[in-house]
Amino acid sequence: MTHILDDYAVLSPLRYKNNWLKLSVVTFGILAGVSSNSPLVPLVTAACMSFATVHFGKIPSGLYLRLLAGPAGFVLVSAVIIAFFFGEGVKLFSFDVLGFTLGVSSAGLNMALLVLARTLGGMSCLLFLSLTTPMIELFSVLKTTKLPDSFIEISMMMYRYIFVFMEVAMGVKYAQTVRLGYKDFRTSFRSVVMLGTNLFIRSWEQGEKLYVSMNSRCYDGKLTMLDEKRPVKLPEAVLACGYFVLVMFVFLYTRGMPLI
């Protein structure tokens, strides 16, 4: 909770690249990953995107690995369930537990590996976007879509206030921790309740103040934003095209080819 990914995105050198180029690279990778039947495609996108994030985006690799391991709990549990129960056919191996026969069939194992690879690929695409593109840049993209104004306004103000409340929450949490507020289950529950209440009341007062201050500055239901023009440079375009071609090639080559 100490750092959110946006903090890294603001410092990343890739921040100053064209937003649409980055978005198309990410969308392409995600779509290729979820629609492929072979684990190789998402693995290739994962490798390319991780390289781009760590090498071009200058993200510390330790942090990057920790972020990729984030979903591991959920994903591994689900993959194990899928491996054991998905698909029929010849079991590769099986054993008895309390009278039940548990076995892994080749279909199940293939599916589990595919799901693992897809999640890895998808997460690395998502991390590329969130570690190189701060939300401020994405707002100008959102403005060009047909989404209603009130939706975008609320997301912009919410973005701002996430940082304000994060800071409040962290301050309160430190203060509680040094006073042994998290020493055991009972006290930590009490502390979390106090923190939540304080945050709620404070956010409410902030919201009322925000309205008054915006009104006194002639807020008429529209926040205007100017975005910078950043043309795509040739080397970036070549690199992106090379990536598209590589992934397409792997996609077509491995179609319908099981790993095991």
């Binding site: 306004e153 609320i154 103000m157 919410m158 409340f165 956010s203 925000l210 309205y211």
Partner: peptide, 12 residues
Amino acid sequence: VPLLAVAGAFIF
């Protein structure tokens, strides 16, 4: 509008 935005930030 600001109230909803602040409420969303609170939920986050």
